[in-house]
């Protein structure tokens, strides 16, 4: 219990630091919100008036206080580009992204874990060489290159799947899946390669340990040894890496969603960055960092739940 309380307290501190960093970095932007709203050619007096009314002349710390106060109470301001309140906009885009993030994570885990175990069981044989080489190529290609190849093959070449757009699963679940499949694959292939490498490395280490030899000596069949004894010990490390990859995923969605015109969180963040929509940049960067931190917290807690050795110490 005290572990949980500690983690939550430290999470609060990290969230606070995330907000400070986000606010500071975005405030070095040349040009301010008033300039964004009125344009560079606007009347200097009107500009000064707007600055005054938006509170842009206040000290930074006061501005930060107002911003974080708004974030905490749900008033996230208005997007300058989309001319809409940010909170509902972000929430809606977040749901779209959740679809491909979860989808790609599932694809990656379902394929990577068996593949990594298979490679580890056949360490230094052709099976291992094949799986390891494939995953090495996988981590070496940029995700958007995967994306382009998938578009060329499945959208342009075979014409099986659409290459752009997003459909809300609430409206049309089949259409939503078809539109989410290619972006999810583009995200998932690189991820799968990372996780395969990690699973293989962890499992190779475990399969060389004493207790595995004992299990074999007892006459347990190889399947039980590998999957029940071996994999049970690899779940923790593999899960931790998968959790860390959530951060990587939320970086990749910016590229992939833009490539596939999939209007989720990454696409929104990209639009905000391109158009220097400061309030939207602040909110989306803060939210992404918070989500990534939360994902890692959940993985850590799962780790404790899965591995009794940590709970006891």
């Amino acid at each position: 219990m005290s572990y949980l309380v500690n983690r939550l307290l430290s999470m609060m501190l990290t969230l606070f630091l995330i907000s400070v960093i986000t606010f500071t970095v975005t405030n070095i932007l040349p040009g301010d919100v008033a300039m964004m709203i009125m344009g560079t050619q606007s009347n200097p007096e009107a500009l000064a008036g707007l600055r005054q009314s938006l509170g842009l002349n206040d000290p930074l710390i006061v501005q930060y206080g107002r911003w974080i106060g708004g974030m905490l109470t749900g008033d996230w301001g208005n997007s300058l580009v989309f001319k809409e309140p940010i909170a509902p906009l972000l929430l809606q885009k977040m749901k779209a992204s959740a679809l491909i993030v979860l989808f790609s994570m599932s694809i990656a885990l379902v394929c990577a874990v068996p593949l990594g175990v298979w490679a580890a069981v056949h360490a230094n044989r052709w099976q291992d060489t094949a799986a390891s080489s494939a995953s090495l190529v996988g981590v070496s290609l940029p995700d958007f290159f995967w994306g382009i190849m998938l578009i060329l093959l499945f959208a342009r070449g075979l014409g099986w799947l659409p290459s752009s757009g997003f459909i809300d699963p609430a409206d049309d679940i089949w259409g939503a899946m078809r539109h989410a499949l290619l972006p999810s694959l583009a995200l998932g292939l690189g991820l799968m390669a990372h996780l395969t490498r990690m699973t293989r490395a962890t499992m190779t280490g475990i399969l060389n340990q004493e207790f595995i030899r004992v299990a074999r000596a007892k006459g347990l069949d190889e399947g039980t040894v590998v999957w029940r004894y071996g994999l049970a010990n690899a779940v923790g490390p593999v899960m931790t890496v998968a959790g860390l990859q959530v951060g990587y995923l939320f970086g990749s969605i910016i590229v992939i969603e833009s490539l596939f015109n999939f209007t989720g969180m990454g696409w929104l963040t990209y639009q905000a960055l391109l158009n220097r929509d400061i309030p939207l940049i602040q909110a989306s960067v803060f939210v992404i960092a918070a989500v990534v931190m939360l994902a890692n917290l959940i993985v850590d807690l799962l780790y404790v739940a899965v591995d009794p050795r940590i709970r006891l110490s």
Binding site: L17, I28, A289, V292
Partner: peptide, 23 residues
């Protein structure tokens, strides 16, 4: 603590934001 906080920002997002900010 500072490093861990920075690690919460996806590296690509951090790089994109800095690049957009600096031009």
């Amino acid at each position: 603590r500072l490093v861990d906080t920075l690690l919460s920002f996806p590296a690509l997002l951090l790089a994109l934001t800095i690049s957009a900010v600096l031009g």
